[in-house]
Simulated scan of single mutants.
Amino acid sequence: MSYPISIFILDVSNSSSDGIGDELANYLDELVTWNTIWTEKLKPIHIKHRAGDEIIFVGSGYSTAYILAFFVSRIWKYRNHNPYFGLSFGDIDKHLHDIDIEKWIHPLIKQARYANDLLKQDQKRPLFKFELDQFYSGNPDNPFLYNQFRNEFETLLNTLLYIQHTLIKEQTKIQELVCSSYLILQQQKAVGEFLGKTPPTISSHYKKGKCEEILHTFTEIMKTLNSLEKKTYHTLRVNPNEASGILLDSIRSHLKENINTLHSI
């Protein structure tokens, strides 16, 4: 029996500079706690802060790691030390309950690590990169993902992520704050009340900051990964879209309770 999972490996840019290594380490510990809270209803998951400036996450579902990584990237507060995420997804023949993340060796881990290393070497350094094919030939029982088109799918996915990253980089600080606030609050009126700005001002920042395009890309990538999982696994206990909805609700609920942390970005 196989199980659908996704993985991210988070690393931090310039983590050894500015003398804030301990502060960053404490922040990563906090993010591990937050991700654990967000995924409470989707257990089992594995998440670990290790090697000083690295977090590794493994959880059920093709889209889970990307959803978590996207939210972390939007609330990240150290703008001189941005995170970047090597991502992979696929299938394993063990239940996550039976995995020891500290000892587990699997091609999907190698893929996420390889994607992370490619980002580390990229001077433009996008936030996200998927690796789907470098080390893993896949499960022949799951033809929807592991067929002759997987290279093309990886290219399209990473191209979308690169365009998304370009739009994010072009945002001003207030546009970034509006976009992140809207991701959580989902209403421009609520964003205006939180930021103390008028609806027309919020609308202007939202449009000029290409927030709709950034968030639409996030949603479409999530939906595509969910569709792929649903086509691969015809007898899932929980529909992938429903699982993602549960995860999104959990993340937003927790972040609304801690919404003032956005002022630090």
Results as ranks from 00 to 15, higher is better:
Glu54Trp: 06
His49Met: 11
Thr39Trp: 04
Ile55Gly: 00
Leu68Pro: 07
Ile67Leu: 08
Trp34Arg: 15
Val58Arg: 01
Leu42Glu: 00
Ser63Ile: 00
Ser60Glu: 01
Phe70Gln: 07
Ser73Glu: 15
His46Gln: 05
Ser60Asn: 03
Val32Gly: 06
Lys41Gly: 05
Val72Asn: 13
Ile45Arg: 02
Thr33Arg: 14
Tyr27Glu: 13
Gly61Arg: 00
His46Ile: 03
Ala51Pro: 10
Tyr78His: 09
Gly59Pro: 04
Ala25Arg: 10
Gly59Thr: 00
Leu24Met: 04
Trp38Ile: 08
Lys43His: 07
Ile45Ser: 00
Val72Ser: 11
Ile47Trp: 01
Lys41Asp: 10
Arg50Tyr: 15
Phe71Ala: 01
Glu54Asn: 12
Ile37Ser: 12
Ile55Tyr: 06
Phe71Trp: 08
Glu54Arg: 11
Phe71Leu: 07
Tyr78Ile: 07
Phe71Arg: 02
Ile55Trp: 05
Ala51Ile: 13
Glu54Met: 09
Glu30Gln: 15
Lys77Ala: 08
Tyr62His: 01
Trp76Glu: 02
Trp38Asp: 01
Ser73Gly: 11
Leu42Asp: 03
Glu54Leu: 09
Asp29Tyr: 11
Leu24Cys: 03
Ser60Leu: 03
Lys43Gly: 06
Val72Thr: 15
Glu30Thr: 14
Leu42Met: 06
Val58Phe: 04
Tyr62Ala: 00
Ile45Phe: 00
Phe71Val: 11
Lys41Leu: 11
Leu42Phe: 02
Tyr62Ser: 02
Ile55Ala: 07
Thr36Val: 11
Phe57Cys: 03
Phe70Pro: 06
Trp34Phe: 14
Trp38Cys: 00
Ala65Gln: 01
Ile56Thr: 08
Ile67Phe: 02
Ala25His: 08
Ala51Lys: 15
Ile55His: 07
Lys77Ser: 10
Glu30Leu: 14
Asn35Val: 13
Trp76Tyr: 07
Ile75Gln: 09
Trp76Ile: 07
Thr64Ile: 03
Val32Lys: 12
Lys48Pro: 08
Ser60Val: 05
Ile56Asp: 05
Gly61Tyr: 01
Val58Tyr: 01
Arg50Leu: 15
Ala25Cys: 08
Val58Cys: 00
Tyr62Phe: 00
Tyr66Asp: 01
Leu24Tyr: 05
Ile75Arg: 10
Trp76Asn: 04
Asp53Ile: 08
Tyr66Ala: 03
Ala51Phe: 15
Leu28Pro: 04
Lys48Glu: 13
Glu30Lys: 14
Asp29Gly: 12
Lys48Ile: 14
Ala25Ile: 06
His49Arg: 15
Leu68Asn: 09
Thr33Ser: 14
Arg50Met: 13
Ala51Asp: 13
Asn35Asp: 11
Lys41Phe: 07
Leu24Lys: 03
Leu28Cys: 05
Ala65Leu: 00
Thr64Asn: 04
Lys41Thr: 10
Glu30Arg: 14
Tyr62Trp: 03
Thr33Lys: 15
Lys48Arg: 14
Ile37Leu: 12
Pro44Ile: 02
Val32Leu: 09
Trp76Leu: 04
Ala65His: 06
Gly61Cys: 02
Tyr66Leu: 07
Lys48Phe: 09
Gly52His: 04
Lys77Tyr: 06
Glu54Thr: 14
Trp34Lys: 15
Gly61Leu: 00
Ile55Arg: 08
His46Arg: 08
Trp34Thr: 13
Phe57Leu: 06
Thr36Ser: 15
Asp29Val: 12
Trp34Val: 12
Val72Gly: 06
Thr39Asn: 09
Thr36Arg: 11
Asp53Glu: 09
